[in-house]
Design a protein around this nucleic acid. Structure first.
Lengths: 243, 243
DNA sequence: AATCGAACTTGACCAAGATCACAGCGCCGC
DNA sequence: GCGGCGCTGTGATCTTGGTCAAGTTCGATT
């Protein structure tokens, strides 16, 4: 990758509008100077990686020109793209603010120029300027972010795994007895709501519960659940692929 | 609903910890007084609605005790629950910060006490206290939020609808010609990436494209797309159910 | 030109889960 | 008690889209 690095004055002219909801006009000129001094603009050719899943976030990226594809690799090795970022839009901010490693990979779709606002500069701006903070809150709140949790998985992951995952979540909250490796708890919701939570039909919930009972993984009496070997739940939720 | 309203001093003791990532210890005592004065605590019985999809957000809710089920009704009338909120956790903040109406419905699962921090007080706190702002940024960044967009729909919505939705999204960005009701544009990505975006297989993309062509809805030549009647795309993406 | 390979298409088959239909069952009001 | 209603379990069938296995096209490399 012969991506080149260069500096350019910050302003509306070069395309870094910072997305729809963030308006640089709200920045004081001293803030804009800070941006100018701190930003790094890089040029990428199609296919180049701008950042990759697992990387430590360096700051916030803003696409000046061209298009970028966001994707991620799920817990099961499923590759999924979930967004296209175009001129004037920002990316990478979710992981940055969360303080986690990047949950997504950004790959140049076309030739493109991307500028990076280093985290240090970003934080200084946010402390000076509460309006900018409000705008970022709004931007984050509107952006659904990378698909994760039950939902994405819902697509490729069998019903049994989804159900077991839900059991693990509810276990924490509604435990009755927690001896050794076995657990006993009460579901706060009926089959109907379980079905809704897992995006499937009540009938399928019934059948899947029966499967779990047949396999000795959990015993259900109405809303009461007994799990003899908690480890098995983790096995199923973690990586099935085998069974 | 005989949900009662009452006031209580704000502090760690009554369970309003504001979620994992937000620590009220960071607030100055004057800020805490502000919270005490502004908050409204309500008691709800199981099944009661705390807020409903489409409501105008009043502020941010914090569950003091009990459990709340979050759900939403999709564009197609599909009811889906997507989370359970327990003691010390906050909810409703996404819509509040986004400035949109609530995208979800919160229903009491058990008897519960929920306190509401009105928006006005919230904003004042945020302006005084940039640390709190950072904490909310982190909270928002970590919270996947209500499932929406292509992904949730992916589950119940047929491949054809997902593909058409993608076409509508890409149309905006890559238009070549935009006469009257017909459009012509170039896809920035290949079939493989389309498949990844829509969480399906390249084979299925091919087949679905063929269907669309057979139905005269769009004509594909490699990456070039011609849509004679744009309205039809909206029909398919908006509410199929008929076809 | 010959070949290789990547991206795409097409067809046959299969499996998971949705749908439809119906039967228990508990609960509530009368 | 009786009758209805909503939730739940069970069975039969169907549809969607994933999987596997060949082709096809096209561009790049030698």
């Amino acid at each position: 990758m012969n991506d080149s690095v260069m500096r350019r004055p910050f302003g509306k002219s070069h395309g870094c509008r910072f997305g729809e909801h963030i308006d640089l006009n709200d920045l004081a000129s001293s803030d804009i100077e800070l941006l100018n001094a701190a930003q790094l603009i890089r040029k990428h050719r199609p296919g180049a990686y701008i950042f990759a899943q697992g990387d430590e976030p360096q700051g916030i990226y803003c696409v000046a020109s061209g298009y970028v594809l966001l994707g991620r690799i799920g817990a099961f090795g499923d590759k999924i793209a979930f967004g296209v970022v175009g001129p004037g839009e920002i990316m990478g901010y979710r992981s940055y603010f969360a303080g986690d490693r990047h949950a997504a990979t950004a790959r140049a779709l076309t030739e493109c120029r991307v500028c990076l606002i280093p985290g240090r500069a970003m934080n200084r701006l946010l402390d000076r300027n509460t309006t900018l903070g409000h705008q970022f809150l709004a931007t984050l709140a509107r952006d659904p972010g990378p698909p994760d949790g039950l939902l994405l998985r819902a697509h490729h992951v069998p019903a049994r795994v989804r159900l077991v995952t839900l059991l693990l979540i509810l276990r924490d909250r509604f435990v009755v007895t927690g001896a050794e490796d076995s657990v006993e708890f009460d579901l706060p919701i009926g089959r109907r709501d379980i079905a809704a939570l897992l995006a499937m039909r009540p009938e399928t919930v019934s059948r899947t519960i029966k499967e779990l009972e047949d396999d000795g993984i959990a015993i259900f009496s109405d809303r009461h659940v007994v799990v003899p070997y908690l480890g098995r739940l983790y096995d199923i939720a973690g990586l099935d692929r085998l069974n």
